[in-house]
């Protein structure tokens, strides 16, 4: 197979967590293949008690005390989360926000699950707000989130798919931005970063062309505590940093449509 990019394959040589090698997986998944993992029929069928037991206790239905506290919804999604470094970094910053990583590779997803469980076990009361789901985000985003549910979406170091005929496999495209705009509330922010210049230019130009997004001004980016994590929190980001690679980010806000 031809080499597509140095930016790929979180496939486990960072060695930070020794167990990672057991979860070694092939570098690329093909997002177009049909799935053979369970997909919720609609967001109503997405069982959150598996993911956030502290917020969604399994026996919730039988609680007869009358005090119905509305459980929080997932607000952040890390699409193509890889080994989950961003979620781990975000969790203590937004302890009351539920976040989910979406990952296509089975083994990588299992790794993130274990990682979150281990963190919860050794830090009681923390990391209850992060989880991961194995899915193809390019096909099933609307099965997980309702309209305007999300306030942040992350696309960190996505696969570049260099060949022109594969551009439509990119996670940021005009088509998919419609769906991301649908699940994001007005004011929500989409964060993208890559070390592949061509992909960086592509993602930015898609976002610029899309009428439901506008660039977040530089001053705001500077004070956004999340931005620092983009290049430092994930396994891929750390690899790029170690190699002294350049990164290209595009940060855009969901706006409402102005029809002239």
């Amino acid at each position: 197979m031809t080499r597509t990019s140095g930016a790929n394959g979180g496939g486990g040589q960072s060695g930070k967590l020794p167990r990672k090698r057991f979860y070694r997986a092939r570098a690329h998944s093909n997002p177009l293949s049909d799935s053979h993992f369970p997909i919720p029929i609609s967001p109503d069928d997405f069982d959150l008690s598996q993911h956030y037991p502290r917020y969604y206790p399994a026996d919730k239905g039988e609680r007869g005390d009358g005090e119905e506290v509305e459980a929080p919804l997932i607000r952040f999604a890390d699409v193509g989360c890889g080994f989950g470094g961003l979620l781990v970094g975000l969790s203590p910053l937004f302890p009351d926000k539920l976040m989910i990583g979406m990952e296509l590779r089975d083994k990588v997803t299992e790794y993130v699950k274990e990682r979150v469980l281990a963190l919860r076990a050794s830090n009681p009361g923390q990391y209850d707000n992060i989880s991961v789901v194995r899915t193809n985000s390019m096909k099933y985003i609307p099965n997980y989130f309702r309209k305007a549910q999300l306030s942040k979406m992350f696309f960190l170091f996505p696969d570049p798919h260099f060949k022109e005929k594969n551009h439509r496999r990119r996670v940021i495209s005009m088509q998919l931005l419609d769906e991301y705009a649908f699940v994001m509330g007005v004011g929500g922010i989409i964060y993208t970063i890559t070390d592949v210049e061509e992909l960086g230019v592509w993602m930015r130009s898609c976002l610029e062309k899309h009428p439901l997004f506008e660039a977040v001004p530089e001053e705001e980016i500077e004070v956004d505590p999340v931005v620092k994590l983009l290049s430092t929190a994930t396994e891929e980001g750390q690899k790029v940093a170690r190699n002294g690679g350049q990164t290209f980010q595009a940060i855009f806000r969901r706006i409402s449509l102005q029809e002239e």
Partner: peptide, 14 residues
């Protein structure tokens, strides 16, 4: 100029 704004997804068919 494009039809980018999704009103809804009707999900239920299996």
């Amino acid at each position: 100029k494009g039809a980018t704004e999704i009103q809804s997804f009707c999900l239920g068919h299996t």
